[in-house]
Amino acid sequence: MKVLIVEDDPAIAANLYDYLEASGYEVDRASNGQTGLKMAVSDSWDAILLDLSLPRMDGLTLCRKLREEAHRDTPVLMLTAKDALDDKLAGFVHGADDYLVKPFSLKEVGARLGALIKRYRGGVATNELRFADVRLDLTTLAVERAGRVIRLQPKCLHLLRILMQSPGRVFGRTELETEVWGDELPGSDTLRAHIYTLRKALTQRGEAELIETVHGLGYRLVAGDTDAS
């Protein structure tokens, strides 16, 4: 998934860039409003992180132009040092989808960004996830593959849900560990062990492997046989 950062503070932009890239996002950055607007409308983005106070065009103007002139509905998470209610309301009026006040936690940015993208893609409304011949019921948490019931421990179930929400996307190891274990990050081999267990459960009857290891990055769901070493 592609995320555009429009932020003029080099340190903040670098932290956001590194965190999102490590989480498996494809990231680009603009350091002023004019460039940010040009990039926002010249490419397709899954979300935009937009600072409010920008040189050459402020964030409110950029967001308004993105909505009213370019007619883009890309999710916008506005980042600002201003925490007054009027400032927040102005952001929403001009087309922002969510609002974070600086200083903020990178984990919260990641969580809010994921929620925005999920709503944008319609992932919130459905009560089940499907990929290839695998079905996950989000209400009962029942898992089936080609009609075969698969019983998973909670952590493996959580991993499967995350992977099935965005098939094909590479999820970074740090992102998966944070999503599943929260602040109490596991040992270095714990995620690998859970992925192994999940793979084994999904392929117990010789079915095609669906979880691919992207070496040096993380994991993703792919259709057909993969090199899952």
Rank of each mutant, 00 (worst) to 15 (best):
K2E: 08
L4A: 00
D9F: 08
A11D: 15
A13Y: 01
A14N: 12
N15G: 10
G24P: 04
V27R: 05
R29N: 07
G33V: 00
L37D: 06
A40M: 06
A47F: 04
I48V: 14
S53G: 06
L54N: 06
P55S: 03
L60W: 11
L60E: 00
L62Q: 02
K65M: 13
L66F: 09
R67C: 02
A70M: 09
D73Q: 15
P75M: 08
T80L: 04
T80E: 06
A84M: 12
L85E: 13
D87Y: 12
G91T: 03
G91F: 01
P103E: 10
P103M: 10
V109F: 00
G110P: 02
G114C: 09
G114R: 15
L116S: 09
R119K: 15
Y120R: 14
G122M: 07
A125H: 13
A125S: 14
L129K: 06
L129V: 08
R130A: 06
F131D: 06
R135K: 14
D137N: 15
L138F: 12
T140Y: 04
L141A: 12
E144R: 14
R145N: 05
A146G: 11
I150D: 00
L152R: 05
Q153F: 07
Q153G: 04
Q153H: 09
L157A: 05
H158T: 12
L159N: 08
R161E: 15
R161V: 07
I162H: 13
M164P: 05
T174D: 13
E175M: 09
L185G: 02
G187A: 14
G187D: 15
D189G: 04
T190M: 11
A193F: 03
H194Y: 09
Y196I: 01
Y196C: 02
T197R: 13
K200R: 13
R205D: 14
T213Q: 06
Y219F: 14
L221T: 01
A223D: 12
A223C: 00
G224D: 01
S229C: 11
